[in-house]
Design a protein around this nucleic acid. Structure first.
Lengths: 230, 230
DNA sequence: ACAAAAGTGTTGAGTCTACACCCATGA
DNA sequence: TCATGGGTGTAGACTCAACACTTTTGT
């Protein structure tokens, strides 16, 4: 530790990787379009400078709200990016956070703060400002890892959903198809889903039963972890 | 993103949680004794301010070398701590790194940089400066998680070791005893260890066979992950 | 000869994978 | 009646946990 605190200081920002699922169980990420240089008009992760009187997570939450209107979500720290040259003008460190939300329940407030916000499918991304492509890639890897030892879905899916929907979510995240019978057996065996006396409506085939998460079981498994090799 | 970079900036430091195993397979952590306020004479994690022309990991590596003499090890980013008030004088963010080493091979250079460095058993820690107790706790949790889906031991154990030693390592990290026969079956089945035509010497009982890691297999499993529920 | 740790095998229960057909519904 | 996805069962392979005794060696 030094004897003084009077060193030149890098700038400190936070960036948010917010994943959302749409009705087609397509995995999307929330981006904003920059209105100012550098990288003017390019798409970027929502984020900005940390103020002196707020924690890192508070800063992430504030920037997300200001730039996209999204608020009230659970953020988890992803990684801190601090290589030289990641911002063309100055030495800037960025602490990245990520979150999972059901995008239907979080309408975007476009053009807040003179920015444009939109959901992009992770299959079809625009070119991103700074090193945000790298940050996003790392967030996707983290999500793929997470899915194997912690339940996901509660944050992403609508409150009532079908088994096929949750299977599609896992297939999307993992990037490969799963066996329907085995997936259901394994999922139901962990006693995490509550079957409802309700069914899908408006489909042109046999209606699927709806389920919801057992919230307390969900939290428990999230803490303890499990093993979901699929 | 803001229109200017001229905000007041928090200070940025790195801290290193270096775990080491001694000959008794006792898990230890590398601490330094602070010679200056705040927290003068208290023990703390090695670390210090990030300079403008070095990456975060380079800074961690430099501070570790300057303060303890330890160098040439693999560091992994742990978490970034940025709550208000974690440093009594100023707003300071710390990016924590952690590492696993075999402490016999990394002799300490005490009193480098006017600091004292020492290994402390994680069972018997002194009171730590700043929020370093919290950082250390998180590092231990991370290690416990890691052990379940990635091989460890290569960095911690001597090059040649017995099955009992690696079992003791797992027992130490996980904090509970393991069944000897099952542990060996599972470990040997993953084809990660190479049995040597050598044995322990100098013990007052039947000498155990020595093993070493198959390095390429080790790296492979580290990337792919595995499942080691024990 | 004894103390101390090394080393080893089996059984029964549970879990995993792979695989194909009938069912209910709306158009 | 047909197209579409919903829903289900089983056999064989494998893996897991639990458990105790014999072997080797140095003192």
């Amino acid at each position: 530790m030094p004897y003084t605190y009077d060193y030149p200081r890098p700038g400190l920002t936070v960036d948010c990787v917010v994943f959302g699922l749409d009705e087609q169980i397509d995995l999307k990420v929330l981006l904003i379009q920059r209105q100012i240089p550098p990288f003017q008009h390019q798409w970027a992760l929502p984020g900005g400078f940390v103020q002196m009187d707020e924690s890192l997570e508070d800063a992430a939450r504030r920037e997300l709200r200001e730039e996209t209107g999204v608020q009230g979500i659970f953020l988890e720290q992803l990684y801190t990016f601090g290589d030289l040259g990641r911002d063309p003008r100055d030495r800037i460190i960025s602490v990245a956070y990520y979150a999972l939300i059901n995008l239907i329940e979080y309408p975007l407030q476009a053009s807040t703060d003179a920015e444009d916000a939109a959901w992009y499918s992770i299959e079809n991304l625009p070119s991103l400002a700074f090193d945000h492509a790298q940050i996003l890639k790392q967030a996707i890897r983290r999500l793929q890892g997470k899915v194997r030892y912690e339940p996901i879905g509660f944050e992403l899916l609508p409150q009532k959903f079908t088994l096929t929907q949750i299977q599609q979510l896992y297939e999307t995240v993992l990037g490969h198809p799963l066996d329907k019978r085995n997936f259901r057996k394994k999922l139901l065996k962990m006693d995490l889903l509550i079957p409802l006396d309700e069914q899908q409506t408006g489909v042109a085939h046999r209606a699927a039963r709806l389920y919801q998460f057992d919230q307390s079981k969900y939290e428990l498994l999230k803490q303890q972890g499990f093993n979901f090799e699929v």
